[in-house]
Structures are given as structure tokens and as C-alpha cells.
């Protein structure tokens, strides 16, 4: 190796080292920016000297009063509401989405293309619009205000068939030859689904359950519309939102933080374990559109 190339080699090496260090620093900064709000919210949930909003982060007096105070409010009730809604929705929505996506991926029937096009157009209407009528109808059925949870579950699952894209993309990747082989062996189409496709679809089933659970867990707008005005029917999102309204914020701000921590904790833990499936679903779904 001549001296000049060695020098150039060294130059390249140092320049690469510099780039990499810069990128590392940028990534550290990014991580800090992304984590700051969550660190702040945890810190402030332990602040007991003042229940309102303050301009500093580190509490002056630490304590768990904000957590224990939660149980004197309607928060446990909201938490139960949300949990029930999310759990039921996770199960039923998964069934519906899988039915829909499996059918649209596996079967070739006459109405298939028109159906998919129709749902694409349907998706262009703002979903908010149908809330007005659904509210009135659910009210007639007695499923609003205090009894909002069953009404909400109905709203969440009823239209969930429209979100079939990601799992359809997954089913599309399972070779058709599997189905054909089973057909030759005399399996009915239902047997093919239960005995062959479903065991292969664990990642997408878990992904669907996870997203179906997280939707109601963090839903704000539908819950606000349907539980309108009644504290017993609220979910955590609506309840915590109201704590930050102008006349409540000075008393409930730190309680909002502690409530937020309690709401975020279970999904974050769930997410940590199932992260792999979520990543697979998101990356796979986006490529196939």
C-alpha cells in the first residue's frame, strides 16, 4: 500500500467515525426529546406540594397522594369501562377483521372487486358524520350516558370490517397451493381456514388483537360523544380530558398525570412483549398498501 492511499484510507476512516459519532449524538438527542414528556408526566404524578400546573419539572415534595386520591374519584369506574370495552372489542373485532380479510384474500367471487371499491369510497366519508345519528339511535336504545360502554363496543366493532387491509396483505402472502392441496384431500373451505391458515397466521392474529385493544383503550372522540355528560359512562380518555378543563385543571392536574401513568402502563408492558408482531404488521401492511 503506497503512502497516499494509506492516508486517504485513514481520512475515510476518520470521516466515517465523525459521521457515526454525529449520528449517535443526534440519536441521543432524539431519544431525549421523545422521552421527555413521559419522564415529566411520571415525575409530576409524584408531586404533592401543588395540584395545579407549574413551570418546573422536579417535584419539591414527593409523595403518592395523587395515586391514592384517584380512588376517591370516578377514575376506577372509567378504568373498568375502558378495560371492558377494550377487551370485548379486541376479541370481536379480531374475529370480524379476520373473516373479512380472509375472504377478500382467498376467494374470487363476483362481487369481490366492487365490494372492495365500495369500501374504499365509504372510507372517504369522515367517520365523525355517522356519530350524530348513531348517538340518537343508541340513545333510543338506552345505550348512552351511564350505559355508554355497551353502546361504544357496538360502535367500535360494527364497522371494523373496513380495516381489513393489513391482514389481507398478510393472507395474500400465504401460498394458494396450500389451499389447493387441502381441497384435493377433501377438506371443506371452513376446514382449510381452521386447520391450515389460522395456525400459520399467529403474527397477524396477535397484531390484530393488539391494535383492536389499543383503539378503544385510547379512544376519545366516540366516547366523548356517546358518554356525553354522564360521569359513570366515561372512559379514561374523556374523564382525564375533563380534568384538564379550565375550571378543574388547578385541582386535578397532578391527578391527570398519575391517571395517565396508570393508563399508559398496561399497554406499554403489553407492547413490549408483543412489539415484534406489531412491527411485522406495520411494516408488512404499509408495503402492500
Amino acid at each position: 500500500m503506497s503512502e497516499t492511499t494509506a492516508k486517504r484510507h485513514m481520512g475515510l476512516k476518520t470521516s466515517r467515525a465523525i459521521t457515526n459519532t454525529t449520528i449517535h449524538i443526534v440519536l441521543i438527542v432524539i431519544s431525549i426529546i421523545w422521552l421527555i414528556p413521559f419522564v415529566c408526566i411520571v415525575l409530576q404524578s409524584f408531586r404533592v406540594e401543588n395540584t395545579g400546573q407549574v413551570g418546573y419539572v422536579i417535584p419539591k415534595v414527593w409523595g403518592t397522594a395523587n395515586y391514592s386520591n384517584l380512588f376517591q374519584t370516578d377514575f376506577p369506574r372509567w378504568y373498568t369501562n375502558t378495560f371492558i370495552a377494550a377487551l370485548v372489542t379486541a376479541v370481536l373485532q379480531t374475529v370480524i377483521v379476520l373473516c373479512m380479510s380472509y375472504t377478500l384474500s382467498r376467494f374470487r367471487f363476483k362481487m369481490r372487486q366492487p365490494l372492495m371499491r365500495f369500501m374504499l369510497i365509504l372510507g372517504m366519508f369522515p367517520g365523525m358524520l355517522s356519530m350524530i345519528i348513531l348517538y340518537r339511535v343508541l340513545k333510543d336504545l338506552g345505550l348512552t350516558q351511564e350505559n355508554a360502554t355497551p353502546g361504544l363496543i357496538l360502535v367500535y366493532i360494527a364497522s371494523s370490517g373496513m380495516g381489513y387491509y393489513v391482514s389481507k396483505g398478510f393472507f395474500d402472502t400465504i401460498p394458494m397451493s396450500l389451499d389447493e392441496a387441502a381441497r384435493i384431500d377433501g377438506a371443506t373451505r371452513a376446514q382449510i381456514l381452521y386447520k391450515i391458515i389460522l395456525p400459520l397466521s399467529k403474527p397477524i392474529v396477535i397484531y390484530t388483537i393488539l391494535t383492536a385493544f389499543m383503539g378503544p383503550w385510547g379512544d376519545f372522540v366516540f366516547a366523548r360523544y356517546i358518554a356525553f355528560g354522564a360521569s359513570a359512562g366515561k372512559n379514561v380518555a374523556v374523564g382525564l380530558y375533563d380534568w384538564l378543563s379550565r375550571d378543574q385543571i388547578s385541582n386535578n392536574y397532578t391527578m391527570f398525570c398519575s391517571g395517565g401513568v396508570l393508563v399508559a402502563l398496561p399497554v406499554t408492558i403489553l407492547f413490549m412483549f408483543l412489539q415484534k408482531y406489531y412491527v411485522e404488521g406495520v411494516t408488512g401492511g404499509a408495503v402492500k398498501g
Binding site: 440519536l27 432524539i30 431519544s31 421523545w34 422521552l35 414528556p37 413521559f38 415529566c40 408526566i41 400546573q53 389499543m214 383503550w217 385510547g218 376519545f220 380518555a237 382525564l240 380530558y241 384538564l244 385543571i249 392536574y253 391527570f256 398525570c257 395517565g260 393508563v263 399508559a264 399497554v267 406499554t268 403489553l270 407492547f271 413490549m272 412489539q275 406489531y278 412491527v279
Partner: peptide, 22 residues
């Protein structure tokens, strides 16, 4: 790095949005 960013997806948007707005 990826885990740090992905975990922020898990936290319900209404919490992070409301908190950031405050």
C-alpha cells in the same frame, strides 16, 4: 433506539397530546 421510539407509540395518544398541549 428503535425500542425507545416504538414504545412511544404504545402510550395512548390522548395522554401524550393532552400533556404536550399543557
Amino acid at each position: 433506539w428503535r425500542t425507545i421510539l416504538v414504545l412511544t407509540i404504545a402510550i395512548p395518544q390522548f395522554i401524550s397530546l393532552l400533556y404536550v398541549s399543557k
